[in-house]
């Protein structure tokens, strides 16, 4: 493990790649490595990019990487694509747009599948962020498809979250409102070369204004930018806005690194605890078939959900003892 940690800290690509695989596959030993890496995290700046399928997220990430590299910054990219609920497989195609950076030592790109474990995406993405952070990347960009709650949660691990939309999304913009509007720090209307971009900018601004109470004096007010990512138009301006947001956060936290503010630690730990409980209790009940059995019993009128729930959960709650014994 010592050498594993050292290799990550020295930026060894192969070790980092394998570690992320082990995180994804939930290899329990990986936690020991993550514990040892934690003191070296908190330096990278994490940017989330989200939006509906095909709005140009990967194209934008690719351009952002190019700009950041010109400034001499190193970049890690985590590109998340959905796992097929039918087969459990996934096509991870975000890399297509970013392959020009694959020979650049200053860039590490990794495609991840959502895998559909309950809230596990956030956990594994966060751990992957930690690894890239410890590896020494200056910026980490996380791309997710902005559809599910899980994906929205992922971008909440970012310091700056960018929401991409395209002109003429109309109803989709309404849909965005549901969960994503709140998490956006910067809104981008991409494909501005298409008709209707001004209207979309206007609609977005209106929607943001309607949630105005949130933006009292001194609070960050999300800007709305126009962009043509394929043509590299508007990307520089976006990076400037990100920098402004970064300054805003730095000021707010009084110099504490974002990841180590009380608020963040609380949020990350609470996620982690919930996930661990799901992993240790819920997933085990599913795997052992006890859960399905209980469903059948309720259906058959042999028990009620309240009793069934107690019967399932209570025996699992002396975990600490169990773990203590294992040690």
């Amino acid at each position: 493990m010592q050498s594993e940690v050292k290799k990550v800290l020295s930026g060894d690509v192969r070790t980092v790649a394998r570690l992320i695989r082990d995180i994804d596959d939930k290899v329990p030993e990986v936690r020991e490595v993550l514990k040892a890496l934690y003191p070296y995290t908190g330096k990278a700046y994490v940017i989330g990019v989200t939006g509906a399928p095909g709005v140009g997220k990967s194209t934008l990430v690719d351009q952002m990487v190019a700009h950041l590299r010109k400034e001499g910054k190193t970049v890690g990219v985590l590109a998340v694509d959905p796992t097929s609920p039918f087969s459990g497989g996934a096509i991870l195609g975000d890399r297509i747009r970013m392959q020009r950076h694959s020979l650049d030592d200053g860039v590490f790109i990794r495609s991840l599948a959502t895998r559909g474990h309950f809230g596990g995406l956030t956990q594994s993405t966060r751990s992957a962020i930690d690894v890239l952070d410890a590896m020494g990347k200056d910026y980490i960009i996380v791309e997710t498809v902005g559809v599910g709650q899980d994906e929205v949660d992922v971008v909440r691990s970012a310091q700056t979250t960018i929401i991409l939309v395209i002109p003429g999304m109309g109803d989709d913009i309404q849909a965005i409102k549901a969960g994503i509007l709140e998490v956006g720090d910067i809104f981008v209307v991409n494909k501005a070369d298409r008709e209707g971009s001004d209207k979309t900018v206007h609609e977005l601004k209106l929607m943001l204004d309607m949630s105005q109470e949130k933006y009292e004096e001194g609070r960050w007010k999300p800007p709305v930018l126009k962009m043509e990512a394929v043509f590299d138009r508007g990307v520089k301006e976006l990076l400037e806005e990100i920098e402004k947001h970064r300054m805003y956060l730095a000021e707010k936290s009084g110099g504490t690194s974002f990841r180590k503010t009380r608020e963040r630690i609380r949020e990350e730990l609470s996620e982690m605890v919930k996930n661990r409980i799901i992993e240790e209790v819920f997933e085990k009940l599913i795997q052992s078939g006890e859960f399905e059995k209980a469903v059948n019993s309720i259906r058959a009128g042999e028990t009620d959900p309240y009793t069934a729930c107690e019967d399932l959960v209570i025996p699992k709650l002396n975990l600490a003892e169990e773990h203590g014994r294992k040690r």
Partner: peptide
């Protein structure tokens, strides 16, 4: 399977580097 697709016109160097990063 999880399938990483890298698109057209790849050099062997690019393919191998991507394969390593993607494990």
């Amino acid at each position: 399977f999880e399938v990483v697709y890298t698109g057209l016109h790849q050099t062997p160097e690019e393919i191998v580097q991507a394969a390593i990063q993607e494990d």
